[in-house]
Write a protein that binds this DNA or RNA. Sequence first.
DNA 1: CAAAATAGGACTCAAATGGTCCTCTTATTG
DNA 2: CAATAAGAGGACCATTTGAGTCCTATTTTG
Lengths: 165, 165
Amino acid sequence: MFRMTRQADYGIVLLACFAQREEGDSLNARDLAAEVHLPVPMASKILKALARAGLLASQRGVKGGYRLARRPDEISLAEIIDALEGPIGITDCSSGDHSSCDIAALCAVRGKWQSISGAMREALGSISLASMAGPPEPGPAAAAGRRPLPSAPARGKRARKEGSP
Amino acid sequence: MFRMTRQADYGIVLLACFAQREEGDSLNARDLAAEVHLPVPMASKILKALARAGLLASQRGVKGGYRLARRPDEISLAEIIDALEGPIGITDCSSGDHSSCDIAALCAVRGKWQSISGAMREALGSISLASMAGPPEPGPAAAAGRRPLPSAPARGKRARKEGSP
DNA sequence: CAAAATAGGACTCAAATGGTCCTCTTATTG
DNA sequence: CAATAAGAGGACCATTTGAGTCCTATTTTG
Ligand code: FES
Ligand code: FES
């Protein structure tokens, strides 16, 4: 449907590594990259961004590295994504002011998008890194996809999704 | 956060025009384009795609045009988006097979993303075109952004992977 | 000081998007 | 039947964006 950038995805994977270890464990870019099989420069770039955003604490110099700035259950997906791909909305238009879209003024659906966008943001905000790093069991994480995500009780909505590609 | 393509956005605006009129009303690309202040070729392109996807019924020839193939409350956002930007998932990886991502095998969070992706899909699937076209009142549409979208009970709770819900 | 790490950008390359145009087919109408 | 008004279906280009690399500081440790 929508696509998150790959970097954000990687970032979460990277952070999950921390979440799966001891609390204050410190790891450097090289080891981390090896762990998730990512090219070092890539991992490095992402880690830097994460550190800049305050999600990771960094330590320079020999024996330096990164560690989580907060407990894994105190970090939400929304924050990670924000850090890695900026606070953009679902649509160009729904993100704050109507700078990009020239039809914004007469756009009938603008407000709705903002609502939906906000809902997603909240949803992502309520999923913690800890739950992403947890076991694939029907634990907290599976629940993430479990609930039908009640949103708009679209009046007769059971529009069948017929067309199977 | 994520961004939907502009075309999908436009498509929804376009469809909303139909939803705001009489049931079987027919409109041609030119008029529609004028109504939403979009360049005609763009509108045309989008309408064609929508028709191909079966969301609009088209009539060729003089006095031709498009009209909704179904009732506005029988068309979901998910369908529209699928029609306009293909069935891609939140992450490259979460969309079906692990073709694109080379770290898919050892990716700890893959499964979780698929769940989340599915949840969003469902959420969008439950919002009808009718509710997008409706008044900005706290009607069905506002509700879209209302509920906190229960997903993973994250914040400050059992961080440890354990702790049965 | 030397080595090992992060910080911070600049840079390149490929792919996706937005947007336009052209040609063909179908229908209406006089 | 001919003219015209639509949609169908692509081809096409320009720009933006994203992925990924690299180079040069700046900090630490020993
Ligand atoms: S399409 Fe841009 S504001 Fe709605
Ligand atoms: S990052 Fe690609 S499968 Fe998780």
